[in-house]
Structure formats: structure tokens, C-alpha cells
């Protein structure tokens, strides 16, 4: 029940925020730069809601929220300005760079947080798929 509750909360907040982000842009006949900005906004909203649902206890959620709130908003969400040069060749380094806030974790924490991150990301993908399918079915 708690699982469904958290999933519903994620769905809730994601849908509300996506609606929220969409309404800030213009309509379907928008120029591509506006579309791009709009999609970025949607992505920010989606990641932010996901991190908020995951809670402050998760290191990746904290890092994601920090990055979302400190980054200037014209920057792309998931792009890093400066890649860490250390341990970039092995698999753990790759995973470290992939996970938000993974540069400062040790390997145990990194794997644990990765498990939780995969959970949340897969649920997020399902939620966004559901919303977009619904919209497409409404349009068609």
C-alpha cells in the first residue's frame, strides 16, 4: 500500500507539474526553440518531482534538487559543465558520473543509491508515458 501510495504521489506531483510547466509555454504551433525550452521545463519539473517524492534521505535526490535549484535555468538539465577527470575510465566512474551526486559516494553507497534511482526513474518513465499516451489519445 505504501508503494502504491508513493507511486500515486509521484504520478500526482508529476502530472500537476507537467501541466504546470506546459501551461507556461505557448501552443502546439510553437517555434522549435520554444518547444525545446518547454521540454526542458517539463524535464526539470519531472526530475524535481521525482526527487521530492524520493525524499531528502536519498543522496541522489538531494544532489538532484540541489542541482536543479542552483543551476541557472537556461542551462540544460542533465548536462555537466565540467566532468571530473578522476576515475573516468572504469565502470564505477561511469556510474558515478551518471548518478546525481555520485562523485562523492563510496562504492557501497553508490550501488545502493543506484538501485533506488533506477526504481524511481522507471516509475517516472511509466508515469510520463501514461500522461503522454493519454494526451495523444485525446488529441487523436
Amino acid at each position: 500500500m505504501a508503494n502504491s501510495k508513493s507511486a500515486i504521489t509521484l504520478l500526482n506531483s508529476t502530472s500537476s507539474r507537467l501541466c504546470f510547466a506546459r501551461t507556461s509555454a505557448t501552443f502546439a504551433s510553437a517555434p522549435p526553440d520554444q518547444l525545446k525550452r518547454q521540454s526542458r521545463r517539463i524535464k526539470m519539473a519531472a526530475y524535481s518531482s521525482m526527487a521530492r517524492v524520493a525524499g531528502r534521505r536519498r543522496a541522489w535526490a538531494r544532489a538532484l534538487l540541489f542541482r536543479l535549484h542552483t543551476r541557472p535555468r537556461h542551462k540544460t538539465l542533465m548536462r555537466r559543465k565540467r566532468r571530473p577527470s578522476t576515475s573516468s575510465d572504469d565502470m564505477v566512474g561511469k556510474l558515478r558520473r551518471l548518478l546525481p551526486g555520485g562523485e562523492t559516494m563510496d562504492v557501497c553507497t553508490l550501488l545502493e543509491e543506484t538501485a533506488n534511482y533506477i526504481h524511481c526513474l522507471s516509475t517516472q518513465v511509466k508515469v510520463m508515458k501514461a500522461i503522454s499516451n493519454h494526451h495523444l489519445s485525446k488529441v487523436n
Binding site: 509555454a25 510520463m128 488529441v139
Partner: peptide, 30 residues
């Protein structure tokens, strides 16, 4: 694992683009 996480992140990106392309005037009901 890395491929899976990357694919999930790319899916989120793609879905956000798709949602941005959708007509925002459509009301939706959960």
C-alpha cells in the same frame, strides 16, 4: 546497469519532449 540508467534518463528526456509537443490545452484527468 549503466546502460539501463542511461536508457531511462534518455527515455525521460524523450518523454518530456513528447509531452512538450502535445497540445497543452488538453485537459487531462488522472
Amino acid at each position: 546497469i549503466i546502460n539501463h540508467v542511461q536508457s531511462l534518463q534518455r527515455q525521460v528526456e524523450f518523454l518530456s519532449m513528447r509531452l512538450a509537443a502535445v497540445n497543452p490545452r488538453v485537459d487531462f484527468n488522472i
